[in-house]
Amino acid sequence: MSLGHESLAEFLCWQTLSAATPLMLAGIGELVGELTGVIDIGIEGLMLIGCIVAYTAAAATGQAWMGLGAAAAAGMASAALFAGVVLWGRADQIVAGAALNLLALGLSATLWSLYQNHCANLGLSTHLPRGAGYDLVAVPGLSHLPFIGPVLFDQYTLFYATLLLAVGIWWVLRFTRLGLMIRALGESPETCVACGIPVRLGRFLAALFAGGCAGAAGAFLSIMRTKAFAFDMTGGQGFMVLALVIFGRWAIGPLVLGCLFFGALNSLQQILQTTRYTLADPWMHALRSVPFEFFQMLPYVAALAALALLSRRHPGPRALGQPWPQEVA
C-alpha cells in the first residue's frame, strides 16, 4: 500500500528477505568455512569491519562499489590474519576467533572516531554522499509480477548476489568435485592428503571466502540497508549466524531457511508492535499492555522454541576446529 506493498504478507516477505540478506550472506561464507573444518567465531567482528570499511571507503571515494569491494577485501584480509594464526600458527580456533571479535570491535570504534575527527577537522559531513550507497534495484519485467515481483525482485543487488551464491554453493557442493573437496577437508583431512588436496591451502581459501562474505554482509548493513555506521551496529548478528549454521546442520538449504525464519520473526515482532496501535482489533488493543521488551524478546524465544521442537543431534564436520596436521598430543 504505502511502500508499494499490496498486503501485510507481501510486506512481511519483502522485509524478511531484505533483513535476512546479511545473515544469509555471512552464513553461506561461514558454512563453507566450517565445512572445510575452520570455525570462525569472529564472524561478528568480520561483519563489523565490513561495515566500517564499506562506509568510510564509500564516503571517501563517493563510489558505492568501492565501499563494497573494500569491505569484502577487508573481510578477507582479517580472515587471512585469522587463518594464518590458526592454520599455520596452529592456534586454537575458538580463542583466535574471540580475539578477532574483540579486535574488530576496538578497531572499528577507533577508526570511526578517527574518521569523524578527520571530517570535523576538514569541516566535512560524515553523511554518506548520495551516490555512495546502493539503492533497491527493481528487476525489469519481473518486478511487476503479482506478489513475487515486489517481494523477490525489488531488492538490493547484494540480495540477488546472495541468492545466486546460495544456489551456486548448493550446486557446487552437490555436483562438483570442488564441493567434494570442501566437504572432505572438514570431514577427513587424511583422505584429502591421500587425494593430493592441500589441506591448509584449501582451508585458507575457504576462510578467505568466509571473510569476504562476512565483509560484504557488513557492507550490506552499512551502505545498503541503512547508509550509516554506528558503534557495534551488527548487534550480535554474527553470533546468530554461527547459531544458524548449527541450526541448519551444516547444509545450505536449512541454513537459508533458518536465516529467513529468524528474519521473519524480527519483522513480525516489529509489525506486531505497530499493529497493536494501528489496528482497531480488541486483541491488538489488549497487546498494548504487554511491555515492548517482550516483543523484542520474541525472535529469540521463538528461535529457542523452534530449536527445542526441531533439533536433532548432528555432530557437524568431524575435523571442525581441529588443527592440521594433528600432533601426537
Binding site: 594464526v85 600458527g89 592456534a91 586454537d92 580463542v95 583466535a96 574471540a98 580475539a99 578477532l100 571479535n101 574483540l102 579486535l103 570491535l105 576496538g106 578497531l107 572499528s108 570504534a109 577507533t110 572516531s113 578517527l114
Partner: peptide, 19 residues
C-alpha cells in the same frame, strides 16, 4: 584516546600469546 584502543590491545595480546 578512543576507548576502542583498549579492546584492540586486549585482542592483540591474546593473538600474540596464541602465536
Amino acid at each position: 584516546l578512543p576507548q576502542g584502543v583498549a579492546d584492540v590491545v586486549k585482542a592483540l595480546v591474546i593473538l600474540f600469546m596464541l602465536l
